[in-house]
Amino acid sequence: KELVLVLYDYQEKSPRELTVKKGDILTLLNSTNKDWWKIEVNGRQGFVPAAYLKKL
């Protein structure tokens, strides 16, 4: 499993997105899109802007 660090808080703006908090370490599911990465948070899957995340 690949992990990502959340660099900035992000509030979901659609049902396909997820809310994340700065400092969270989460599972990366897909990073093929350069702008939006798919991650998992508490069993939910969704997208967060790639600029808000850093691969560990």
Rank of each mutant, 00 (worst) to 15 (best):
K1D: 12
K1L: 14
K1W: 12
K1T: 14
K1P: 15
E2S: 11
E2R: 09
L3N: 06
L3T: 10
L3H: 13
L3E: 09
V4N: 00
V4I: 06
V4F: 03
V4W: 04
L5M: 13
L5Y: 11
L5W: 05
V6D: 00
V6C: 06
V6Y: 00
V6K: 00
V6N: 00
L7R: 05
L7C: 06
L7K: 05
L7Y: 03
L7W: 03
L7T: 05
L7N: 02
Y8F: 15
Y8W: 13
Y8V: 14
Y8N: 10
Y8A: 15
D9W: 03
D9N: 10
D9E: 04
D9A: 05
Y10V: 01
Y10H: 03
Y10I: 01
Y10M: 01
Q11F: 14
Q11N: 14
Q11R: 10
Q11E: 14
Q11T: 15
Q11M: 13
E12S: 15
E12W: 07
E12V: 12
E12I: 10
E12Y: 06
E12C: 11
E12L: 13
K13E: 08
K13D: 07
K13Y: 05
K13S: 11
K13I: 08
S14T: 13
S14R: 10
S14D: 12
S14Q: 09
S14A: 10
S14C: 09
P15K: 10
P15C: 10
P15I: 09
R16W: 15
R16E: 14
R16L: 15
R16A: 11
E17N: 07
E17H: 07
E17G: 10
E17W: 05
E17T: 08
E17K: 07
E17R: 07
E17Y: 05
L18G: 03
L18Q: 05
L18K: 04
L18Y: 02
L18A: 12
L18T: 06
T19Y: 05
T19I: 04
T19H: 08
T19L: 05
T19W: 05
V20T: 02
V20Y: 04
V20E: 00
K21S: 11
K21H: 15
K21R: 13
K21V: 12
K22E: 09
K22Q: 13
K22A: 14
G23D: 06
G23Q: 02
G23F: 03
G23R: 02
D24H: 06
D24V: 04
I25W: 03
I25D: 00
I25Q: 04
I25L: 08
L26M: 06
L26F: 11
L26N: 07
T27W: 13
T27F: 12
T27D: 07
T27A: 09
T27I: 15
T27L: 14
T27C: 08
L28H: 01
L28Y: 02
L28D: 00
L28W: 01
L29Q: 04
L29Y: 04
L29D: 02
L29N: 03
L29G: 02
N30R: 07
N30H: 07
N30K: 07
N30I: 07
N30F: 07
N30Y: 06
S31P: 05
S31F: 06
S31R: 06
S31V: 07
S31L: 04
S31N: 09
S31Q: 10
T32H: 13
T32D: 15
T32V: 11
T32G: 09
T32Q: 14
N33I: 05
N33W: 06
N33M: 09
N33F: 07
K34N: 15
K34W: 07
K34I: 11
K34T: 11
K34D: 13
K34P: 13
K34Q: 10
K34C: 09
D35H: 12
D35N: 12
D35A: 11
D35E: 13
D35R: 11
D35G: 09
D35C: 09
D35K: 11
W36Q: 03
W36S: 04
W36E: 06
W37A: 02
W37N: 01
W37P: 01
K38C: 11
K38G: 05
K38R: 12
K38A: 11
K38H: 15
K38F: 15
I39Y: 00
E40C: 11
E40P: 00
E40T: 07
E40M: 08
E40G: 09
E40R: 05
E40K: 05
V41Q: 13
V41T: 11
V41I: 12
V41Y: 14
V41A: 14
N42I: 08
N42F: 08
N42C: 10
N42H: 11
N42E: 11
N42W: 06
G43S: 08
G43R: 05
G43N: 10
R44N: 14
R44G: 05
Q45S: 15
Q45C: 10
Q45A: 14
Q45N: 10
Q45Y: 09
Q45W: 11
G46F: 08
G46P: 01
G46M: 09
G46V: 06
G46D: 02
G46K: 02
F47G: 02
F47E: 05
F47P: 00
V48R: 00
V48E: 00
V48Q: 00
P49Y: 02
P49S: 02
A50N: 03
A50F: 02
A50R: 10
A50T: 07
A50V: 07
A50Q: 06
A50Y: 02
A50K: 07
A51L: 14
A51P: 09
A51R: 15
A51I: 12
Y52K: 06
Y52G: 10
Y52T: 09
Y52Q: 05
Y52N: 12
Y52F: 11
L53Q: 00
L53H: 00
L53W: 01
L53R: 00
L53C: 06
L53A: 01
K54T: 13
K54A: 11
K54F: 10
K54S: 12
K54P: 00
K55Y: 10
K55V: 12
K55D: 04
K55I: 14
L56E: 04
L56D: 03
L56K: 03
L56S: 03
L56C: 09
L56F: 09
